[in-house]
Structures are given as structure tokens and as C-alpha cells.
Design a protein around this nucleic acid. Structure first.
Length: 426
RNA sequence: GGAGAGGUGGCUGAGCGGUCGAAAGCGGCGGUCUUGAAAACCGUUGACCCGUAAGGGUCCGGGGGUUCGAAUCCCUCCCUCUCCGCCA
């Protein structure tokens, strides 16, 4: 949620910045509604003030044992007027909130202007795009040859966009998770946290999935109102909802391993082949809750932590900064890490690291006590995948294959693989 | 699933329907004392909204109701705890 005060004080600039990411703000009706809100609020508060004063007066008179009847008569029809004003204020407030909840975050000044992914800017490239010297297979063919990647069975069990992984390849998938969790907890100072995989609507609203993107989510039937998480970002960020954090406890750095569930509505036919785009996948997520002045440093660090996973695995990748038009709803700035997939001869997103500044913090009322002012102020939130485990598995398979379809296990994973250093087709 | 108890400020915990944003204690902050610290003593200490300010308003788990007036009464939902049953 962007700051209503900012809209009031610098409307034109807000409109311009939102425009740069392709959002058209109806400034006219927003201003009108805001003016209305103020008017109704002032009137309501006046009435409340009068009510409070007369109630107090009546109390005094009664306590003194005098007759309160004249005073009571004076406020006889007061209630309706007040109730009506309060109801109207409530209604205006809700409409205002509805609009505010729909407005995306403002892009940071350093974000390149652009319309879509074609305008993203490559910042760096790590590792040579491997020249394998033979025609590389994609992970689907490699997995089939190994007999360890089974889309048909998963389709039977559940439907399309699911996978069953078996044997040592499933072990490799698990090894990747373990490796990532250990790296972030042991080397980079993140606290491991285990969280619910289902959350309530309030949490989804807090991180920005709701109200706008409900169709991307899986909602659980029943009257409890649960949603399956599309990313650990949702439960982990909501840890600090409605909290005022002591400055000494910042930054908070969490790492969580969770499954993620996405409906992928509107992506029919897109990435239909393979396990690039699934309804269910595993992810290791980094979340940092930081002082506002630290959030851009935190974004760089967190991105480096995600990159480190790939470097240690020896996988080549590049980092791009998303342009204004390609960023997610809640982000002020986003780096995507893209892995090279020989089977597709292209880069694919394997991590997305974003600074949300105070956008999520405002929605979840996550604050810290600024020692300079003594007052609660909004924190900044930063998060990123480190990494999407399924796509990392795909990357290992495709980048570490040889001509006969064998997969070499990266050195750093071997301690997790019970001595297996290569996967071979049977 | 059955039976009961309870949700109040950072924490513990009081609170006859009126002067209660809320006693008291702890904690925090400032001060006195001290070479320094501790102890003791004094003072101070919730969040949010509108307003330049003065000031006004809202908040005692959420929502609704009764009332001139609700932390206090009623309804409803949520959560926590205890006992019984079931169970990974």
C-alpha cells in the first residue's frame, strides 16, 4: 500500500511514477473521495465530541443526585445523526482503502524505464554459457531416460502441471534443499523458520496477493478461509504483522523451505512441457525485515546470497534488473536471477529478489522503534528465492549432462547424496 | 468431538454502566546519590487518525447490539488454556 499522505502531498509525481509501470491512477476520483473522507470525518468527530461531552455532563448531574431529565431530552434524537455519520465515514473509508489496496508500489529511481521483459537490463553474467559439444537434451528427456521423472503418473494422480520424481533424482532434489538451507543458516546468518503452508486472507492481503490476484491462488474449501501459500514470503513476512520491533533486533533474517502452490491461471499452454511451471514446487526463501535506510544494501546482499547458491553449484547464470513495466505488484525494485538452460537454449528465472520498501510493512503495520525519534516507524521488507528448488534441479540436470545422458552431481551436493556422484540412464 | 475457564498497555495483573486510555507491580527511559555500577529515591513511559498548532476523535481479541453514556450488559465469531475422547 502506498502512503496516502504521499498521494495528498505529491499527487502528480505519484501518478507519473505509477504510469511508468503501466498503472493508470484515477487521481481525480481519488482526490474527490479523499476530500469527502475528510469532510465526513470532521463532521463525525464533531458529533462524537458533543456526545461525549453531554454523556459526561449527564453522569455528573446524576452523581450529584440531580434530575437529568432535561439533559436527556436535549440529546434525544442525537443518536441517529451520529450513527448515520459514522456509517458514512465507514463506507467512505472502505472505498478509499479498496482503491489504495489496488495501487501497486512506486518504482525506485534506479529502476530502468520500460514496458515489459524485453526492457529488463542484464547487470552481470556468471560462468560461461557451457558449450557442451553435443546436442543437449532438456530435463524432460534426461529425466525420462533416467526413469526418474514421471509426468504421466503425476497427471494420473493429480492432473497436469505436476511431477513425480523418483529414486536418486528425488534424492538430488532433496539434497539441493538441504544444501541451500545449510548455506543460508550457517554462512549468511539467516534463522530457519518453519511456517504454515496455508494462511488466512489477512496474510495474503498483507503481502499483496489479495485482493487483486485471487485467481492466482488456491483457496481451500470450507469456512476457515484458508489459502495455500504461493511463496513462503507470505507466511514469513506476516510474522512481523502488527509488531513494533526493537531496533536492536533488526535486521531480522529468515530462511524458510516450503512448497509453493500456484494456480497458473492464464498461463495455458505456456511452459506446458517439463517442470518449469508447476502447480506445486519447492522453494527456499530468504526474507529480511530491515531499517528503511538499510533496505537497498539488504537487497544487494540477499541477491548475492541467492547467487552464491548457483556459484557453489557451478551453474552459469545472469542477473537482470526488472524494468518498471515488468515488476511485480508490491516491488519497488527487483533483480531476477536467470539460469542458463541448455535444453531450451535460453535463460529462465530461478530467483526473484525484491525490495518492497514500506509497501508491505504499511499493509501489515510492521514497525520498528526508531531510537532517534522514539516513535514507531514502518520497516522495510526484502525477500528473494534462494532458490526455486525444482528449477534448480532442472538446471543441474541440463547443465551437468554429458553426451550419454548422465548427470554429474556437483561437488557441494555430494555430501548429501550418500556417495552418489553421477546419475546414469539404466 | 464433549465439558469447563479465559482473552485488558512491552510483560504480570486490577477494573461498581459515568470523572477509565485504564490501578498496581515489573520492565524501559530521564534524574538524584556514587570514582563507576548496583540498590534506594524522584520523575517519566501505549498505538492510530484529523489538525501548522491548540485541540478533537478512535482503540481494553474481531464484528454487531442495548444505552444519553460500554473495558464493564447482550449476541456472534476468532484465539488461548485445563480435563475427557480420538489421533500423525
Amino acid at each position: 500500500m502506498i502512503d496516502l499522505k504521499l498521494i495528498r502531498s505529491d499527487l502528480n509525481n505519484v501518478v507519473k511514477r505509477l504510469n511508468s509501470r503501466g498503472y493508470v491512477l484515477d487521481a481525480e476520483s481519488l482526490s474527490r473521495l479523499e476530500a469527502r473522507r475528510k469532510e465526513v470525518q470532521v463532521r463525525t468527530q464533531e458529533l462524537q465530541s458533543r456526545r461525549n461531552a453531554s454523556a459526561k455532563e449527564i453522569g455528573k448531574v446524576k452523581a450529584a443526585g440531580q434530575d437529568a431529565a432535561p439533559l436527556l431530552a436535549a440529546v434525544a434524537n442525537f443518536g441517529d445523526e451520529l450513527k448515520q455519520a459514522e456509517a458514512e465515514l465507514d463506507q467512505v473509508q472502505q472505498r478509499l482503502d479498496g482503491i489504495l489496496l489496488d495501487i501497486p508500489n512506486l518504482p525506485h529511481a534506479s529502476v530502468p524505464q520500460g514496458r515489459d521483459e524485453r526492457d529488463n537490463v542484464e547487470l552481470r553474467h556468471w560462468g560461461d554459457t557451457p558449450e557442451l559439444g553435443f546436442e543437449p537434451k532438456d530435463h524432460v528427456d534426461l529425466g525420462a531416460a533416467l526413469g526418474m521423472l514421471d509426468f504421466e503418473t503425476a497427471a494420473k494422480i493429480a492432473g497436469s502441471r505436476f511431477v513425480a520424481i523418483t529414486g536418486p533424482l528425488a534424492g538430488l532434489h532433496r539434497a539441493l534443499t538441504q544444501f541451500m538451507m545449510n548455506l543460508h543458516t550457517r554462512e549468511y546468518g539467516y534463522s530457519e523458520i518453519y511456517v504454515p503452508y496455508m494462511v488466512n486472507a489477512e496474510s495474503m492481503r498483507g503481502t499483496g496477493q489479495l485482493p487483486k490476484f485471487e485467481e492466482d491462488l488456491f483457496a481451500i474449501q470450507g469456512d476457515q478461509g484458508f489459502y495455500l501459500i504461493p511463496t513462503a514470503e507470505v507466511p514469513v513476512t506476516n510474522v512481523v504483522r502488527d509488531e513494533i520491533l526493537e531496533a536492536s533486533t533488526l535486521p531480522r533474517k529468515y530462511v524458510a523451505h516450503t512448497p509453493c502452490f500456484r494456480s497458473e491461471a492464464g498461463s495455458y499452454g505456456k511452459d506446458a512441457r517439463g517442470m518449469i511451471r508447476q502447480h506445486q514446487f519447492e522453494k527456499v526463501e530468504l526474507v529480511q525485515v530491515v531499517r528503511p535506510q538499510d533496505s537497498y544494501d539488504a537487497l544487494e546482499q540477499l541477491t548475492a546470497h541467492a547467487e552464491a547458491v548457483l556459484q557453489k553449484l557451478g551453474l552459469s547464470y545472469r542477473v537482470v534488473v526488472l524494468c518498471t513495466g515488468d515488476m511485480g505488484f508490491a516491488a519497488a525494485k527487483t533483480y531476477d536471477i536467470e539460469i542458463w538452460l541448455p535444453g531450451q537454449q535460453r535463460f529462465r528465472e530461478i530467483s526473484s529478489c525484491s525490495n518492497f520498501e514500506d509497501f508491505q510493512a504499511r499493509r501489515i503495520r510492521a514497525r520498528w522503534r526508531n531510537p532517534d525519534t522514539g516513535k514507531p516507524e514502518l520497516v522495510h521488507t526484502v525477500n528473494g528465492s534462494a532458490l526455486a528448488v525444482g528449477r534448480t534441479l532442472v538446471a543441474v540436470m541440463e547443465q551437468c549432462q554429458d553426451e550419454s545422458g548422465r548427470i554429474r552431481i556437483p561437488d557441494v551436493l555430494q555430501p548429501y547424496m550418500n556417495g552418489i556422484d553421477i546419475l546414469k540412464p539404466s
